[in-house]
C-alpha cells in the first residue's frame, strides 16, 4: 500500500502528457454533452439581438490563458458576424489587444466581415476601473482612435456609439478579476448586460454572479468554449481538446483514488502495527 504513496511524480507527468497527446495522434473526438445552461444563455442572448446591434468584447487576458479563452473569443466573434452584429473589441489587459487582432484576422474574413465596418479593435488602456467607469460617459472619449490610429468617428462600425446605452452586450473574456469590475461598474451603474468567458480556475468565484443574473451567461474554460463551438456548429480548437480533457481527467481521478487507497491503507497498517 505504501508503495502507492511513493509513485514518482514524473510517472504521473508522463501519463498525463500521454493522455493529452494520444487523442490528437489518434484523431479521437468526444462531443461534450448538452451545453451548460450558462453557455446556452450567452448563445441565446446574442442570438436574439437584432442585426446591427453592437456588442463589446473585452480581451482581458494574456497568452498564458489563450488555450481556454481564445477559442471562446473566436466562437463568439463568428456567431456575432453571422448575426450581422457589430463587434467592438478592446482590452484591459496589456497583451489582450494583440490576441484580439489574431482572432479578428482569422474569423472576420472567414465570416465575410470587414474591419472598420463590422468590427474594430480599440486596443488597450491602462487603469481598468477608470476605463470601465468612463466609458459609461463616453466611449469615444476613452478610445478616441483604434489600434491602427484611425479616429473612431471615421469608422462606420462606431457610428452612433456614444456610451453603454448603445451597447447591447458586453462579453468579458478574462483570466483575472475584471468580470467583477464590469459587473460592479458597467452593469450595476449603467445597467448594460454583461456576460463572461473565464478560465476554469475562476468558475466557482463567478457562478454566484450568474445565479444572481448579474451575468447573463458564463462560459467556463475549455468546456464552455467547446460547447459554444458546437452551438454555432463550428467545432474548432475548443472541441478538439475535449477528448484529451476527458481522458486526462480520467487519469487524474484514477491517481486520486490510488492516492487515497494508499493513504488509508498505510494508516490502517500503522494502527495494526501499534
Amino acid at each position: 500500500m505504501e508503495r502507492l504513496l511513493r509513485i514518482d511524480r514524473r510517472v504521473i507527468f508522463v501519463l498525463i502528457f500521454a493522455a493529452v497527446l494520444v487523442p490528437f495522434l489518434a484523431n479521437l473526438k468526444l462531443k461534450p454533452g448538452a451545453p451548460s445552461p450558462s453557455t446556452r444563455d450567452v448563445y441565446d442572448f446574442i442570438g436574439k439581438l437584432p442585426a446591427g446591434a453592437a456588442i463589446m468584447l473585452a480581451f482581458d487576458y494574456g497568452p498564458a490563458s489563450m488555450p481556454e479563452l481564445q477559442p471562446m473569443a473566436a466562437a463568439i466573434c463568428r456567431h456575432a458576424f453571422r448575426r450581422d452584429l457589430r463587434v467592438i473589441c478592446l482590452a484591459l489587459s496589456p497583451q489582450g489587444f494583440l490576441l484580439a487582432d489574431r482572432v479578428l484576422a482569422e474569423t472576420g474574413p472567414q465570416e465575410g466581415a470587414a474591419y472598420g465596418e463590422d468590427y474594430v479593435n480599440l486596443g488597450f488602456k491602462p487603469g481598468y476601473t477608470a476605463v470601465v467607469l468612463n466609458m459609461g460617459q463616453s466611449i469615444p472619449g476613452v478610445y478616441s482612435q483604434d489600434t491602427k490610429g484611425t479616429p473612431v468617428e471615421r469608422l462606420p462600425v462606431m457610428r452612433g456609439i456614444r456610451n453603454y446605452s448603445d451597447i447591447a452586450l458586453i462579453v468579458d473574456l478574462a483570466s483575472s478579476n475584471t468580470p467583477a469590475t464590469w459587473v460592479a461598474f458597467a452593469h450595476e451603474r449603467f445597467k448594460v448586460p454583461v456576460a463572461a468567458g473565464i478560465t476554469a480556475v475562476m468558475a466557482t468565484e463567478y457562478y454566484p454572479f450568474y445565479q444572481s443574473k448579474q451575468l447573463v451567461g458564463l462560459l467556463n474554460g475549455l468546456k464552455g468554449a467547446a460547447e459554444y463551438e458546437y452551438l454555432i456548429e463550428n467545432p474548432d480548437r475548443g472541441a478538439m481538446g475535449m477528448a484529451s480533457q476527458s481522458i486526462a481527467h480520467a487519469v487524474i481521478i484514477v491517481f486520486v483514488i490510488l492516492g487515497n487507497v494508499g493513504y488509508f491503507g498505510a494508516r490502517r497498517r500503522r494502527r495494526v502495527t501499534r
Binding site: 502528457f17 490528437f24 489563450m66 488555450p67 481556454e68
Partner: peptide
C-alpha cells in the same frame, strides 16, 4: 476540480 480542468487545458493548448 475546476483548477485541474484549467491546468489540463493549458497543457492541451501547448500540445495543440
Amino acid at each position: 476540480g475546476n483548477t485541474v480542468m484549467a491546468r489540463v487545458s493549458l497543457l492541451i493548448g501547448r500540445v495543440q
